[in-house]
Simulated scan of single mutants.
Amino acid sequence: MTTLSQTKEIFRRADAVCFDVDSTIIREEGIDELAKFCGVGDAVTEMTRKAMGGSVTFKTALTERLSIIRCSREQVNKLITDHPPQLTTGIKELVDTLHQRNVKVFLVTGGFCCIVEHVATQLSIPLHHVYANRLKFYFNGEYAGFDETQPTSESNGKGKVISMLKEKHGFKNVVMIGDGATDLEACPPANAFIGFGGNVVRQQVKEKSLWLLQRGSLHWDHDSGVHVLNERN
């Protein structure tokens, strides 16, 4: 069983850090924002809560939410233009510090590439370090489903991505940081998990995280690695 001190040491020595995006890298849940933009926010928000809490499988929740939203390519593009994702306070500085320390940073999320790639660009994260779901559209731009072959569309998909990254790059210490049950379950194969509750606190993550960052702005701390104001150990 990994202890808190071991978790912090793994983070200090990490070869790679994998971040969730929704409610971690950014303040909001991208799919909820898309739903609001398309006029079906209330129905989708409740399904997101269940998915992040682990009470339904991720793929089931994703399929049901998208079947309600049925967004067009035009709506997605307009959302990004009119309501771009808002970065969590301090996250750019943290990612910059990790890059300066030659730590590889990846975005591993159940969100959508069209939104996540916009976020990656803001953080100078290479687009080939983005693992996310892909929406599909018909030639006229209408919603046609999502790519079900992406590992991030499945439960335990984030763990599959991390296993692949470790095998491909030979990483010894990989840390997963996120707010949801799908992030928690990615450890193992991640060597350590850091729960993030700076935007929303999920009960399951709060109970099972050795290290839960609850509120304030993220920044690098020499002694403990990542630090957040009023963290709970």
Rank of each mutant, 00 (worst) to 15 (best):
E9S: 15
E9R: 13
E9T: 13
D15I: 05
A16H: 10
V17Q: 07
V21R: 02
T24S: 12
I25R: 01
I26D: 07
D32E: 15
A35N: 05
K36P: 00
C38T: 09
G41H: 03
T45K: 14
T48K: 03
A51L: 03
A51C: 09
T60A: 14
C71Y: 00
R73W: 06
E74V: 06
T81Q: 15
D82R: 00
D82I: 02
P84I: 07
L87M: 10
I91S: 01
V105D: 11
F106K: 00
V108G: 06
C113G: 12
C114G: 06
V116I: 07
V116C: 05
E117A: 10
E117M: 06
V119P: 05
T121F: 11
T121V: 11
Q122V: 13
L123P: 00
L123C: 15
I125L: 07
P126T: 14
P126R: 11
L127G: 03
L127E: 10
A132F: 07
R134P: 01
L135V: 03
K136D: 12
F137G: 05
F137I: 12
F137D: 04
N140Y: 11
N140G: 10
E142M: 11
E142K: 08
E142V: 01
Y143W: 13
F146H: 10
E148R: 01
T152P: 01
S153L: 05
S155T: 07
N156F: 14
K160S: 12
K160M: 15
S163R: 10
S163E: 12
F171M: 09
N173C: 11
V175L: 09
M176N: 08
I177M: 15
A186R: 01
A186L: 12
P189I: 14
N191K: 11
V200A: 11
Q203T: 07
Q203N: 14
Q214S: 14
Q214V: 12
Q214L: 14
D223V: 09
S224M: 09
G225N: 10
G225Y: 08
V228W: 01
E231R: 11
R232C: 01
R232Q: 15
